[in-house]
Simulated scan of single mutants.
Amino acid sequence: MPYKNDLAKNRACNKVPRPTNPPLTSPSCDEYPFASTHEGLDKAGINFSVAWVEGPDNCSGGAKLVDWYQKNRILEGDPFWVDVVKKGSKPPPDVAQADPSEFDFAHCEDD
């Protein structure tokens, strides 16, 4: 499934111009819904978002997402809800928090 989501993300990203003012140092296309989900861009229809971001930021976000899956025991096919909170707000107390010291950035690749 993620492979099809990546193809759909790449098609969508090719339609969005990369920022030029200021230009990104290491451009990477980010997507929502997450490529790692069954609801990724391949199945999203018109309900998706893509944006060019700095590569290290995108990789860091992906590492945090993987850590969140593991800490909350989100397994293949498990339903979960994404609750967007304002920057600086605290997430619900029953959600396991990511530990940045445990992030694995080895999977990071440039788009």
Rank of each mutant, 00 (worst) to 15 (best):
D94S: 07
I74M: 06
N72H: 08
D78E: 03
N72K: 07
P79D: 01
K87V: 10
S89H: 12
S89P: 04
I74P: 10
P92K: 10
K87R: 03
G77Y: 00
K64Q: 09
D67W: 04
P91S: 11
Q70K: 15
F80L: 06
D67C: 07
F80N: 05
P92S: 13
K64N: 09
P93H: 01
P92R: 15
F80Q: 05
K86T: 10
G88F: 13
G88E: 00
E76I: 04
N72I: 07
W81S: 12
I74Y: 11
L65Q: 11
L65N: 01
D78G: 03
V82G: 14
P91V: 02
I74K: 11
Q70W: 10
F80H: 07
K87I: 08
F80V: 12
G77T: 02
L65P: 00
Y69W: 06
V66H: 06
Y69G: 02
W81L: 13
W81E: 09
N72D: 08
D67E: 15
L65Y: 11
Y69N: 00
I74N: 04
W68I: 14
N72T: 05
P92A: 07
K87E: 14
D67M: 10
V84E: 11
G88H: 09
V85M: 13
P79N: 02
I74C: 09
D94P: 00
R73N: 15
E76D: 11
V82P: 00
R73F: 09
I74L: 05
D94V: 00
P91N: 04
K71H: 10
N72V: 12
P79S: 03
V84K: 04
D83S: 12
K87A: 14
D67R: 11
P79Q: 14
D67I: 03
G88D: 10
P91D: 08
K86R: 13
V84Y: 12
D78A: 11
I74E: 00
V82I: 14
E76P: 11
D83T: 11
Q70N: 13
F80S: 04
K90C: 01
Q70D: 00
K87S: 07
W81M: 14
G77I: 02
K86M: 04
D94L: 04
V66K: 15
G88N: 06
D83E: 12
P91I: 01
D94C: 05
L75V: 12
D94T: 03
P93S: 08
P91R: 05
E76C: 03
S89K: 10
Q70V: 10
P79R: 09
W68E: 12
L75P: 02
L75S: 05
Q70H: 14
V66F: 09
K90V: 07
P92E: 09
V66Q: 14
W68T: 15
D78Q: 02
G88P: 00
P91W: 07
P93I: 12
W68K: 08
L75D: 06
P79C: 04
L65M: 13
I74G: 01
K71W: 04
G77N: 02
L75H: 10
Y69M: 06
D94Q: 02
K90G: 03
E76L: 13
K87C: 01
K71E: 06
P93A: 04
L75R: 15
G77C: 00
R73G: 09
V85I: 15
G77K: 12
D67V: 03
G88W: 14
P92N: 02
V82N: 13
V66T: 12
V82H: 08
Q70S: 09
K87M: 08
G77S: 05
K90S: 12
P79T: 05
G88T: 07
D67Q: 08
D94W: 08
